[in-house]
Amino acid sequence: MSRPGRDDAPDRLYTITGGRSGAGPDNPFDLVTLVVAESEPATGMQSEHAAILRLAEFPVSVVEVAAELRLPVSITKILLGDLLVAGRVSARHPHRPAITDPDILEQVLVGLRNL
C-alpha cells in the first residue's frame, strides 16, 4: 500500500498498461512463475519493461518483479505478457515448491509479520 505522499510517481496504472486492466486468458504468469530476461533493455522502451529486463537478468518470480516495480501483480502480469509476446523474456514454472510443509510456511509468515 502506498501512502499518498510526495514520493508517489505521477504515472497512473492505466497509463502504464495502455488502458488494459487485466491479462488475457492466455497469459501464462502466476505469482511464482520464474521470469528470465532474454535480451538487454533497448532504448525507447517503456521504463517498466526495461526495469523488468534488468531485474530478470537472473530468474526472478513474478511476485518479486511486482514488488520491485511496486506495481500490483495484475499490472505486472500484463507487462510481462507484453515482453513474452515480444520474445524478450521467457517464463517457466518452478518444478516443485521448495517448502511444502504448511507449518513451516505458517511459522515463516508469522515471523515475517513480526519483523
Binding site: V63, E64, A66, A67, R70, P72, V73, L109, L112, L115
Partner: peptide, 8 residues
C-alpha cells in the same frame, strides 16, 4: 516487497 508478496 514482503508487503506486496503478502498482498499478492
Amino acid at each position: 516487497r514482503f508487503n506486496s508478496f503478502r498482498q499478492a
